[in-house]
Design a protein around this nucleic acid. Structure first.
Ligand SMILES: [Zn+2]
Ligand SMILES: [Zn+2]
Ligand SMILES: [Zn+2]
Ligand SMILES: [Zn+2]
Ligand SMILES: [Zn+2]
Ligand SMILES: [Zn+2]
Length: 179
DNA sequence: GAGTTTGAAACT
DNA sequence: CAGTTTCAAACTC
């Protein structure tokens, strides 16, 4: 909890869960300059969600199991003021993926428990940009990935010889998903 | 800051 | 399950 000094933070909860049209509530708390330094420490990356209400995995805050704080999100419900809705959203996400929140990062994949085991599906980034979840997590792509033209390997030299069945030079995993 | 690109998450 | 749409971040200019 932070100490509201100027009373410039959240908006009154006017968001209705099943309402037809939600009024645009823009988070007015983002006056950096020197407000951030107050809390320091965490300084997590703020989200800028506008349509997900920060109640879907689109929102990094929500995906990481964190409450939005110092974010620029609109109509944010990822807070204790909307705990009921938030809990429902969490439940929905868990229904889709029981391990959705087990790992700090997004995970799904079979048998992933507290580890990144997502496997990316990049097609145009070569897994060398932050678009790639593997690259962002600073891990190499594995056989779980279905990326095309992957270069996210310790050995940047990836030969596409016919010898390689997959685009991945080193696949220690014998068990393949379904293929 | 505006506009584009990108691939995960969501939806059908 | 696959194809499509939605979404917010990463990136470019
Ligand atoms: Zn958010
Ligand atoms: Zn947030
Ligand atoms: Zn939020
Ligand atoms: Zn990738
Ligand atoms: Zn990967
Ligand atoms: Zn890759």
């Amino acid at each position: 909890m932070w100490t509201p000094g100027g009373a410039v933070e959240c908006q009154p909860p006017s968001v209705k869960p099943t309402c037809s049209s939600a009024p645009p509530e823009k988070n007015t708390l983002e006056q950096h300059t020197d407000s951030m330094r107050n809390f320091s420490e965490k300084s997590k990356k703020p989200c800028h969600c506008t349509k997900s209400l920060c109640l879907k995995l689109y929102c990094d805050c929500f995906a990481n199991g964190e409450i939005c704080n110092n974010c620029s999100c609109v109509n944010c419900c990822n807070n204790m003021e909307h705990e009921t809705i938030r809990n429902k959203a969490i439940k929905t996400c868990l229904g889709r993926n029981p391990d959705a929140f087990n790992s700090k990062m997004h995970s799904s994949v079979q048998g992933a428990k507290g580890s990144y085991t997502r496997g990316c599906n990049c097609k145009s980034s070569g897994c060398l940009k932050n678009y790639c979840e593997c690259y962002k997590a600073k891990i190499m792509c594995s056989s779980l990935c279905k990326c095309v033209s992957c270069s996210n390997y310790s050995r940047s030299k990836v030969k596409e010889s016919a010898v390689q069945k997959s685009s991945h030079p080193d696949d220690n995993n014998t068990h393949h998903t379904t293929k």
